[in-house]
Every structure is written in structure tokens, then in C-alpha cells.
């Protein structure tokens, strides 16, 4: 059965696509789109002389889309910066916006959704007020329950959307739900963050990899996992050769209680993308990795999700990771009752 191994191979070694026939290309493109990796793939394939004309066209389109996403993301960050600058608080960009703002390889061709920022927990109220009162953002929905759910149990404010630009911002004060078992040290992440030329900040290299790994496993049922893992591969390739990176990664993973997710993410990245690893941050054991790999590759040539039972297993796991069981029941019950 075809799975996303096809996509992984094309990303790792674009020259292997020379062997593809029309069917193979069709499947590759459907998978890449479904995994939100079409822009990254299009950049990897750029300049190869064996691309069929249609593929070359679709790649040009995808690169254009990614450039649009990049510009939009940077603009949202800039608009948030203008509103928040008077507070004098550190504002740390996370995920896709951080990658493009810092000019990292992980940002090349990446699709970017909401703007995610990390601020000090004590600054949360002031940030929220500035965004709403001066910035033109508003609550996506006025809903007391969801509101309390976000504020009490999750790691972010309820999402805000900009009235005119129609773009969302997620304001985090820690990088995992408060109820999740690992409790990353968000204050330390902010303290160690790196300032960009415009005054906004991004996580330090080690923290960025830690956050990306936490995000891969804690956020959802590993859906979009190939893309998140591609982020990790690119980050490690950028940072790996830098002095002290591997040692810092080990220390930060421990400090944030993220050794396991970081180790697993590194092993999976190595297994799928051939990510070059050093030191012992990847741990030794590989128990269970094969199951994760099967899950990550569960996508067919029509762009459909396959291996449904396996996905379900991961879905249940992911909710247990996020919330203690009683809270899960309470959460679902409220959802059921409200339809």
C-alpha cells in the first residue's frame, strides 16, 4: 500500500523523484498538500530539470503561496509589535512566524496559520488589553465555558481575531497546557530568548527544538506530524553545527521536563529525514518508534488518512496527555450537552 514514504523520500532526496511516473507525481502532490508540505517540497524540487511541466507549474504556485504566507505572517507579527512595544514586555514569536522572522530553513516554503506569541504570565492581562483596545483584535467568540477552559486549563488566551485583517493571534504564557505532565519552564524560555532586529524575540536554538518537539506530541493526535517533524529536521540542520548546541539541547530538555519528547522527536527525524544527530539527546531505546513512524506515514496517494485504528489510538493518547482523565470527561460532557 502506498504511504507517505513517497513524500518523505522526495523531501530528503529530491533527485529520487526522477523515477516517478505521472501516477507517482500525482500521488506525491496530493500527499504533500494534505500534509501541509507542498511549499517545502516545491522549494526542495526547485531547479531540478526533470520535472514535468505541470509539476513545475504547481511548484511555482506553491512557492508563491508560501511567499504570501511568509509576508502575511511577518506583517501580523509587526502589527502585534507596534501595539505591544509600549508595554516594554518581551514578546517571543513561536512556530512558523518565528522560523521566517529568524530566517531559518524551517521557514522556507512553510505554510503558516495563526500568529503564536509567548509572553510572561504576569503580562498576560496587559497584553490582552493592548491587543483588544489598541490593536483591533477581538474574541473569536464570546463563550464563557470555552473561555474558562482556555484560561484555566490550556496554555493560551482564547484565540483573538483581528477585526479587519481576519487573522488570528494565540497568546501563550507557557508552551504546553498547564494540565499536561511536563511543565516546561516558560519564564526560562523567555529569559533565554534571542532578540531580532525589530525588537521581537525568538526562542534560543535549544528551546526552539524543545518547543517544536513538545508541539509534535502534545498538540493533537500527531496530525500534521510529518510537517512538524520536518520543522525539527530543518532546525537541527541549522543549529547542529553551532558551538554548544547539543549540550544546550540536553540541558534545556531536562530543565523543561521534555527529555522524552525531544529524544523521540530526534529519533523519528533521524529515521525519516536522516537528520544528523550528535550527543545523547536522542536517548538509546527505540521502543515504540516503529508505531509512531507508521502513524506519521499514514497517508495515501489520494491524500487520504489511512490506518484509522492506529490514528484513533493516538488520538485517545493525545487527549490523555493533555488533560487528566476527570477533566477530559468533564470537557467532553460539556461539549456533548451543548451539541
Amino acid at each position: 500500500m502506498t504511504d507517505a514514504r513517497l513524500l518523505v523520500r522526495a523531501l530528503v532526496d529530491p533527485a529520487t523523484t526522477r523515477a516517478l511516473d505521472a501516477e507517482g507525481w500525482t500521488a506525491l502532490i496530493a500527499m504533500a498538500r494534505a500534509e501541509q508540505l507542498m511549499g517545502s517540497l516545491a522549494h526542495r524540487l526547485d531547479g531540478l530539470d526533470h520535472l514535468p511541466e505541470k509539476v513545475a507549474q504547481l511548484c511555482t504556485d506553491a512557492r508563491q503561496s508560501a511567499e504570501h504566507a511568509r509576508r502575511q505572517a511577518l506583517w501580523e507579527a509587526e502589527m502585534a509589535r507596534r501595539v505591544l512595544a509600549p508595554l516594554g514586555e518581551p514578546v517571543v514569536l513561536l512556530k512558523g512566524t518565528a522560523y521566517v522572522a529568524a530566517g531559518l530553513s524551517a521557514g522556507i516554503g512553510r505554510s503558516i496559520g495563526d500568529l503564536d506569541i509567548l509572553v510572561r504570565r504576569d503580562a498576560l492581562d496587559a497584553v490582552e488589553r493592548a491587543l483588544i483596545e489598541q490593536g483591533g483584535w477581538e474574541w473569536v467568540k464570546e463563550d464563557a465555558y470555552d473561555d474558562a477552559y482556555y484560561r484555566d486549563y490550556m496554555h493560551e488566551l482564547p484565540p483573538l481575531i483581528h477585526k479587519e485583517r481576519d487573522r488570528m493571534i494565540d497568546v501563550h504564557h507557557t508552551v504546553l497546557p498547564l494540565t499536561a505532565k511536563p511543565t516546561p519552564d516558560a519564564e526560562a524560555m523567555i529569559a533565554d530568548s534571542v532578540e531580532l532586529a525589530n525588537g521581537l524575540r525568538v526562542l534560543s536554538p535549544a528551546d526552539m527544538v524543545c518547543h517544536s518537539a513538545a508541539h509534535l506530541f502534545a498538540d493533537g493526535d500527531l496530525a500534521g506530524g510529518l510537517r512538524n517533524l520536518w520543522d525539527i529536521d530543518r532546525l537541527v540542520r541549522d543549529f547542529g553545527p553551532r558551538d554548544g548546541f547539543w549540550q544546550a539541547l540536553g540541558e534545556r530538555a531536562q530543565r523543561h521536563q521534555l527529555q522524552k519528547p525531544v529524544a523521540r522527536a530526534l529519533r523519528l527525524a533521524e529515521a525519516l529525514y536522516g537528520t544528523p544527530l550528535e550527543g545523547d539527546a536522542a536517548g538509546r531505546g527505540r521502543a515504540g518508534d516503529a508505531l509512531y513512524i507508521r502513524r506519521l506515514l499514514a497517508r495515501d496517494g489520494w491524500g487520504r488518512e489511512i490506518r484509522k485504528l492506529l490514528r484513533l489510538a493516538f488520538y485517545i493518547r493525545s487527549h490523555w496527555l493533555r488533560m487528566p482523565p476527570f477533566m477530559l470527561a468533564k470537557h467532553l460532557w460539556t461539549k456533548w450537552r451543548k451539541g
Binding site: A22, W25, T26, I29, A30, P52, K54, V55, L58, W302, G303, R304
Partner: peptide
């Protein structure tokens, strides 16, 4: 009919 389509649609 295209060899390599621009888009895939699924009815399921």
C-alpha cells in the same frame, strides 16, 4: 484527461 492533474477531488 490530464496526465498530472492540478487538483484532486474526493467524494466519499
Amino acid at each position: 484527461a490530464p496526465d498530472i492533474p492540478d487538483f484532486t477531488v474526493r467524494l466519499f
